[in-house]
Design a protein around this nucleic acid. Structure first.
Length: 603
RNA sequence: GGCUCCGUAGCUCAAUGGAUAGAGCAAUUGCCUUCUAAGCAAUAGGUUACUGGUUCGAUCCCAGUCGGAGUCACCA
């Protein structure tokens, strides 16, 4: 039982004792006391004034006095400001609580107190899901980092996670790259050119679009509209013929397709590795795109869907306030929605997850609304309710949205390399040259990647992010390097302590001294970590963890600045401070690990 | 036009319906002979887009207005 819960129970009992008033005090009503007031937790009495027929201040006083009288071991004192009853707990209480936090780190998964949220045992998280016709960009980075972090956070809450990537490896866009490569490529390969595979394929995708644009311009000069020109386009037709051939299993087309995709995979692997994301299961759309057709046939029989005269199949969602949606084209081929119906079913069959979390941009909110609706209302699949769309905002540039075709994208690999370089120059400018070359390289990588990951993850997922490529991502303030720096400082402190042969582990807290404001502030923050974690898991919001960690690091830096540790004459106090420092380091490390951010022993 | 999301300091972002709305950048000012200055302290910066409603209390919930983004494809 945690402190809030204990306090809530005490208050509940007291209310009954004083006024014969029986009510359930929810833990959430007990909140942390704001920093500028004295006290640890605050009970707001306003909601009870009416029923108990007492003015707020009197009520708060009466409750406070009774609490102190009844629970002297637990409660130290109280003060009242208007209707706010601020309660201070005994220092001892924090010590025992702190020890609990400590053992938590070491305990094996099964023995931990598992935070039961709305999730059950096994969860599936899908993220990344790239197209294989071009390299990853900053938007994909947000997707990957979010998915990976959410997976980590859920795991830290004791959930069993399956990480899934659905690779979109077929379709007209791939054929466009293939067409351009055949036309202009001269058998160029990643090996022959030294270009990373995904970038090479992306290069030909761009070349295709250039050629197409040129052709459309030519038709345009003959007086055709853009739409007409699209229809008349010869190269577009050729790309479509390639897709046709691909679907007919034409060996040569398949060979080129497989070859180019493999180049892309090799490239993606490097990007994923540097980003620190991984997957348990990779689905390929080329293997799953025909699924779902069956489900549509089934739905046709039961009358859930209907067929138009031209043979296309539709679902009517007007009763649910939406419109009609296509499920099979006139030629009987499937569309995006059909495939998603199929893959949802397959995943459910493969893993029977209690929740399927899809990390997909908010541009697809409507799509997922429809998907869930069809599964639940039309096909009566109960796993439709298990689908959760983790919808995140776009990454915008100062001049608008990123568009591949207009070349206004921030490439993932370029950005990561730029972050590395930035870390290098910044560190060197600070004049910290106490590193071997390899050690330094690792540090720059930690700092650069950390800054990038934190920059993305500290923002509420549902909000858009504005990224200005002109201004590099900051290394000061609310950033990963600041947090990493704090960690390195603490580690340095601990090393010094060991040099001085100071053992901070075996402290007895029994013969008490009064906790200082700073120590207590840190202990409170450390105590909060578990609830922040489960909150982040429930709301699928890593930003909560980020802001918490920053708060902790900042608080520690204050502490560090103002509180002498080695100079302290009272040995017990000094040891306690070292112990708190160590706990801060542990918590920071755990939190950053959730983001895939490494933390340096020194910097 | 319908639906969804967003609107908080000059900029980037915080704030389970609670107290005087907080940080970081940028600006000004102090602090490296003192456990790492990627730090700390201080000053300045706000009608939380607007108007109503709900209540002891609203940045938060509801309705409307105004701005911005997304979406409404036989693309994925």
């Amino acid at each position: 039982m945690n402190l809030q819960q204990t306090l809530a129970n005490h208050i509940q009992n007291t209310l009954f004792e004083l006024y014969n008033f029986s009510t359930k005090i929810d833990v959430n009503i007990i909140q942390k006391t704001k920093k500028e007031f004295e006290g640890d937790f605050t009970f707001v009495v306003f909601p009870y004034t009416k029923e108990l027929g007492r003015p707020p201040e009197l009520l708060a006083h009466e409750i406070g006095q009774q609490l102190v009288k009844n629970y002297p071991e637990f409660i130290d004192g109280f003060n009242v400001i208007k209707g706010f009853l601020n309660i201070s707990l005994r220092d001892r209480v924090w010590f025992t609580e702190r020890e609990v936090v400590e053992t938590w780190h070491a305990a094996p998964l099964a023995e931990r107190e598992i935070v039961e949220t709305c999730f059950a045992a096994s969860l599936l998280v899908e993220y990344s899901s790239p197209n294989t016709n071009k390299p990853l960009h900053l938007g994909h980075i947000r997707n990957n980092l979010l998915g990976n972090a959410i997976g980590n956070i859920l795991e830290a809450c004791g959930k069993k996670i399956v990480r899934v990537n659905l690779v979109n490896d077929r379709g007209i866009h791939i054929c466009k790259s293939m067409w351009a490569w055949l036309k202009f490529g001269n058998n160029e390969t990643p090996d022959s050119s030294g270009i990373k595979g995904d970038h090479l394929v992306g290069k030909y995708y761009v070349l295709f679009n250039k050629a197409l644009k040129k052709e459309i311009a030519e038709w345009g000069s003959q007086g055709y509209s853009e739409e007409e020109a699209q229809k008349k386009s010869q190269i577009l037709k050729e790309a479509q013929e390639m897709l046709q051939k691909w679907e007919e299993n034409d060996p040569e087309t398949r060979r080129i397709w497989a070859q180019m995709n493999n180049w892309v995979y090799a490239g993606f692997d490097k990007t994923y590795q540097r980003l620190g994301v991984r997957f348990d299961k990779i689905y390929y759309e080329s293997e799953t795109y025909l699924l779902g057709k069956e489900m549509v046939e089934e739905g046709l029989k039961t009358g859930a869907f209907y067929q138009k005269l031209d043979g296309s199949v539709w679902v009517d969602l007007s009763e649910e306030g939406l419109d009609e949606k296509l499920l099979l084209r006139t030629d009987g081929t499937s569309v995006y929605m059909t495939q998603d119906l199929g893959t949802a079913q397959q995943r459910y069959n493969d893993y029977q997850p209690q929740k399927m979390i899809y990390v997909v941009g908010n541009e697809q909110n409507y799509h997922f609304g429809v998907l869930k609706l069809i599964l639940r209302k039309k096909l009566h699949k109960n796993f439709g309710d298990h689908i959760e769309h983790l919808s995140y905002g776009m990454v915008e540039l100062p001049f608008g949205k990123m568009k591949s075709r207009e070349g206004t994208v921030v490439d993932a690999d370029d950005l990561m390399e730029a972050m590395f370089q930035e870390a290098k120059t910044t560190t060197e400018a600070l004049g910290k040259f106490d590193f071997e070359e390899e050690e330094a390289r690792k540090l720059y990588e930690m700092l650069g990647m950390g800054a990038l990951k934190y920059f993305i993850l500290k923002v509420d997922p549902k909000k858009n992010i504005l990224f200005n490529p002109e201004e590099s991502i900051d290394f000061n303030g609310n950033t990963a390097p600041f947090i990493q720096y704090t960690y390195a400082r603490i580690k340095s402190l601990i090393r010094k302590a060991e040099e001085h042969k100071i053992s901070y582990q075996d402290i007895s807290f029994s013969n008490g001294f009064k906790l200082g404001k700073q120590e207590k502030e840190l202990l409170k923050l450390l105590y909060d970590f578990e609830s922040i974690l489960s909150n982040a898991a429930e709301t699928l919001n890593p930003a909560l963890v980020a802001n918490y960690t920053f708060e902790l690091a900042k608080e520690f830096n204050r502490f560090y600045q103002e509180t002498p540790i080695f100079k302290e004459t009272i040995i017990q106090l000094r040891n306690l401070r070292l112990q708190i420092a160590e706990n801060c380091a542990q918590t920071i490390k755990r939190a950053m690990k959730l983001f895939g951010i490494e933390v340096p022993e020194k910097m």
